[in-house]
Amino acid sequence: MNDSNALLTVQNVKKYFKGTKGCQVKAVDDVSFAVAKGETLGLVGESGCGKSTLGRTVLNLVNATEGGVIYEGRDILKLPQTEMRMLRKKLQMVFQNPYSSLNPRMTVLEAVRAPLDIFGIGTKEERFERSRDILKYVGLDEYQMYRYPHEFSGGQRQRIVIARAIISEPDFVVCDEPVSALDVSVRAQVLNLMQDIQKERGVAYLFISHDLSVVKHISDRIAVMYLGKIVEISPRETLYDQPGHPYTQALLSAIPIPDTDIVRERIILKGDLPSPMNPPAGCRFHTRCRFAVEECRMKEPKMRFDESGHGVACHRWKE
């Protein structure tokens, strides 16, 4: 992807958390990528790899240690708080847990109208109408507007959260595990809704999930994270057909397929995820990698791209 159609560019972002006794957790360590207008970038990785921290850092919800996020020609990580707040109507977020991300004392109408109230968009009547329309759009009836969150199921709540995120017509929404708390049959409803919204409103998503099959379904491009770093980034088809990084290969082969006729070779990774307090030197994956050689223990691999835009951070890629 060239930079001219980039909506948002993330440049060398780092987020270190201070631990006890002076040690640091490098939750996000030198990550760069760009998101185009109206595309979905999937971000996958296992728990503790830093994907949620990255999502929050990109939206300036936690202060980055280093790096920048360029949106409309400005580095939003350096904006004063008042300006950042106004920009939030264009940069929104959907969290994983639809039970804790709605205020139990606000009716659904109030919750969804809140962004319009805060940003001072429209007259009182217009705000009401827009809230009613958007709730209808995500599948809620008018009589349900005055109800409280506890009266809704998990799937309905996540629709309400999505309605609240898109009511201010954002360009970019970070979705942090938006369907992980939902049951399979309800998950499909919410994924379809998110795709419809994107088609009709042209919003871009950073879709964070640990579930590779969901990410594959919804994303145009996918980035794979391991211990604070992006190890591979590529268009969807390439990632699933020709995974370049040994970690991506293992991750893909580990997913059980709901079909009894497909037999695959499985790569079982040895051991556990190393502690992010003390990540291995060189390539961070070398302790669990099938192909690791001396170079991998010594030198950290840089992300290399081929002409199709497929990037892999591995010394032995394409050998």
Partner: peptide
């Protein structure tokens, strides 16, 4: 309604 690793569908079936 389950997204599949082995194929790509435009839209998921939903109950």
């Amino acid at each position: 309604s389950i997204p599949r690793m082995d194929r790509q569908e435009e839209r998921l079936f939903s109950i």
